[in-house]
């Protein structure tokens, strides 16, 4: 993945709770065997409505998705992360993420900034009032800043994941460097364990 240090830009306010991955990318799209082209399916069932927030002109080109609580719950489909990123988002802010979605995001370089619900509400209201509001997410300092409304808060990210984001490291490559440890572990596995 590419290094991710700062995400800076405007946001789309998706003011709904429990947006599961079936909503993010409907199952019709899961039949693809390629890794690209999913932006067209993003929020598939809602996109037909002209008034849906993603369709509004004032939010065109936004880099940050501002979501409600329990964003990305449900199915493990990584296609949800691909759809969000291929559409042009680089970060999602929410009070609470589905864990598999959050984990999938770390493999692709999508920043999931989990903030207190009250702060999320504050940012949501401010972006709804002023779509031009600028938000800065700093992966090095692990902060979300919205200078116009005096918000400057931090978000959690495991140290090893942060390191991979900042350096743009490939997870698999890192693990393959530990090949000797894996071989040693394998030689000690109980013999009763099943094989295909």
């Amino acid at each position: 993945m590419k290094p991710v240090r700062i995400v800076e830009g405007r946001a789309v306010p998706l003011d709904r709770s429990d947006v599961d991955t079936d909503q993010i990318i409907p199952s019709d799209w899961l039949k693809q065997v390629e890794r690209t082209g999913f932006e067209k399916g993003l929020f598939g069932e809602w996109r037909d409505e002209p008034s849906f927030v993603l369709n509004r002109e004032e939010h065109a080109g936004a880099k940050i998705l501002l979501a409600g609580p329990n964003f990305g719950t449900g199915s493990s489909r990584e296609h949800a992360v691909w759809a969000i990123m291929q559409y042009g988002f680089e970060a999602v802010i929410s009070p609470r993420f589905g864990p598999i979605f959050a984990n999938n995001s770390t493999k692709n370089g999508l920043v999931c900034a989990q903030l207190e619900a009250a702060v999320c509400d504050q940012i949501m209201a401010a972006v709804q009032a002023d779509p031009t509001l600028e938000i800065v997410i700093d992966v090095k300092r692990l902060t979300v800043e919205v200078p116009a409304i005096d918000v400057n808060v931090s978000f959690p990210l495991g140290a090893s994941i942060q390191h991979r984001f900042l350096e743009g490291l490939d997870d698999i490559g890192l693990t393959m460097q530990k090949g000797d440890d894996i071989t040693a572990f394998e030689s000690a596995r109980p013999t009763y364990m099943p094989a295909s």
Binding site: S76, R77, E78, H79, V81, I100, N103, N104, K107, N108, G158, S160, I161, D171, I172, L174, T175, M176, K178, I182, E186
Partner: peptide, 21 residues
């Protein structure tokens, strides 16, 4: 036992391991 995304599927295929928090 837990569900994983496609990047992790690739990771397990290649290494039979997964980094976990």
């Amino acid at each position: 036992s837990f569900g994983i995304g496609t990047s992790e599927v690739e990771h397990v295929l290649a290494t039979q391991t997964l980094p976990q928090q």
